[in-house]
Each structure stands twice: as structure tokens, then as C-alpha cells.
């Protein structure tokens, strides 16, 4: 029981005492008794009386035992950082802008804005860059979380990429299982 709760219960006892002497005939408190009860609850425990000394003693005992408890220190064992937020280099900015432009052209149905040779150059260069990063242990998803790329888009491009280097889908599967990718 907290000291606050203890005080409250003692207050109630005092209030009950105020009520005790003469209850109504049916056992219900009279209006006067109710008023005395409310007054006792409001005033609380008067200083100097036995009850007040008891409360004071309980409070000081608790403070003492709290003080004796060893202070437990928070030891930080490890911090596991959130993944690094992207560093914005000028080239990254430029590439992101280009990606946004391409995305916009696709949305607008302006499929000829970027001619096939430009698309080929971009796909080829990105393929090599991604693979090089992967080899270095710099693993990240091929498309970001908020990308609008659909599963069909991926299948179309993957199929075309495999065809470009004369690979069959089953060979990709074999290579992945052999090399535990």
C-alpha cells in the first residue's frame, strides 16, 4: 500500500468514527452524520494526534527503505543503429531527377521521350553498378520500397535481361541455388 493510500484509509477510519455514535433507526446515517463524515474527509488527519504520528512514521520508514535500496544503473549494452539514411551527392541528385523525369514520361504516356539507345545505356550501366555493389557486400533491394514497379514490369525486364545475355530462366534458378543466392 502506498503512503497515499494509507493516508486515505486512515482518513476513512476517522470519518467512520465521526459517524459511529448515533446512526439513524434504519441504520442509515442522518444528514448531520453525513455532513460530519464529509468534513472529516475534507479536513484529513489533524496534526499532533496519534493517527498523524503513525502516518508520519510510515512515510519516513518508506523513505528510509527507498534510500537503502541500491540504485540500479542503466547500462547500455549496445545500440543497434537504424539503417543509414541516403547521402545526397550531386550525382545522386542528378540521377534521382532523371529517374523522376523518366517516371513522369511513363505516366504521361510519352514513351518516346527517352529513345531506346538511352534506355539501353541506362539499363546496362545500372546492371553493372548494381552487380558491382552486390559483389562488394553492399546489398540492397533492386527497387526501393515506394516504387511503382509492378511484378509484370519486373518479369518483362528480367526476361529481356536474360535474353540479352542468352540465359534461360532455369539457368538463373540453378545458378542461384548453386551459389546460395
Amino acid at each position: 500500500m502506498s503512503s497515499h493510500e494509507a493516508t486515505k484509509s486512515l482518513k476513512k477510519t476517522a470519518a467512520k468514527k465521526a459517524l459511529a455514535p448515533k446512526a439513524g433507526a434504519d441504520g442509515d446515517p442522518t444528514p448531520a452524520q453525513k455532513a460530519a463524515f464529509a468534513k472529516a474527509m475534507y479536513e484529513g488527519v489533524k496534526p499532533g494526534i496519534k493517527t498523524a504520528r503513525k502516518i508520519a512514521q510510515e512515510k519516513s520508514d518508506k523513505a528510509k527503505s527507498d534510500a537503502e535500496k541500491p540504485v540500479q544503473k542503466v547500462e547500455i549494452l549496445r545500440k543497434i543503429a537504424a539503417p543509414a539514411t541516403p547521402v545526397e551527392t550531386p550525382d545522386t541528385k542528378r540521377a534521382l531527377q532523371l529517374a523522376a523525369d523518366i517516371e513522369k514520361a511513363t505516366q504521361d504516356g510519352d514513351f518516346e521521350r527517352f529513345q531506346p539507345e538511352a534506355q539501353q545505356a541506362l539499363i546496362g550501366a545500372l546492371c553493372r553498378l548494381y552487380s558491382a555493389n552486390n559483389d562488394m557486400g553492399n546489398h540492397f533491394g533492386a527497387v526501393g520500397q515506394r516504387s511503382a514497379v509492378t511484378a509484370t514490369d519486373v518479369m518483362v525486364l528480367c526476361g529481356a535481361l536474360l535474353k540479352a545475355v542468352d540465359l534461360q530462366v532455369f539457368e538463373l534458378g540453378l545458378w542461384q541455388s548453386w551459389s546460395s543466392r
Binding site: 549496445r78 543497434i80 543503429a81 539503417p83 546489398h139 540492397f140 533491394g141 533492386a142 526501393g144 520500397q145
Partner: peptide, 15 residues
Amino acid sequence: MDLIADRGRRVTVEE
């Protein structure tokens, strides 16, 4: 080191 979780999201764990 980062691992890939859902939707390509990266999660850092200790090496």
C-alpha cells in the same frame, strides 16, 4: 550490417 526485410527495407543488425 544491413539485412533486407520487407519490400526491400533495410534493417541494421550487429555483425
